[in-house]
Amino acid sequence: MLGYKELPFEIMQTGEFYYDLMKSGRIKIVRKIKDPVTLQDPCNIIRRAGASEKFRYFVNATCENFTEMTPNKEHNFCCNAGGGLAGLSNWAAHKARGNRVKAQQIKETGAKVVITPCHNCSTGIKDVIKYWDLGVKNVFFDEILVQTMDIPETLKVGK
C-alpha cells in the first residue's frame, strides 16, 4: 500500500488498543459504570476492521448494564456522520432526520448512555440525540476508561 508492501507496524483503533491493555493486564478496571449503556458500532472499525468482539469485551468489562442495539455488530446502522458527513453542520437536521432508525434503536435499548468509540459517530449520535430529543448522552471509550480504571496512588503528585 502506497509504497509499503508489508507494514512493519500494527495499525489499530484506540478501542482495540484499550482491549489489548486490558487483556494483557496493563490496565486494571476497579469500578464499573452503573448507568444502562448501549454501544454504537462504527462502520469503519466494525464492518471494515472486525473489532466487534473486542469492543464488547471492553464494554462488558467496564459497564454493568449493557444492552445491545438491534441490529448490531456488522449489521449496525451508520451514525449518519460517516463518509465525510461529520463536518456538515449546516446539514445537521437533514442528517438527523435521515437517521430516525438510529433514534428508535437507542430508545429501544432504554440506555442512558451511548458509547461512541469514534469521533464521527460521536458527532452523528449527538445530532440524532438532539434532533429526536432522546435525553441520553454519548461518551467515548477514553472517558469510560479514565473513570473506571485503576490509577495507582503512587503515580499521583504529593503521594
Binding site: 464492518r47 471494515r48 476492521a49 473489532a51 456488522e74
Partner: peptide, 8 residues
C-alpha cells in the same frame, strides 16, 4: 473484501 476487513 469483507474477509480483508475481518468481517462477514
Amino acid at each position: 473484501q469483507f474477509a480483508l476487513w475481518n468481517s462477514k
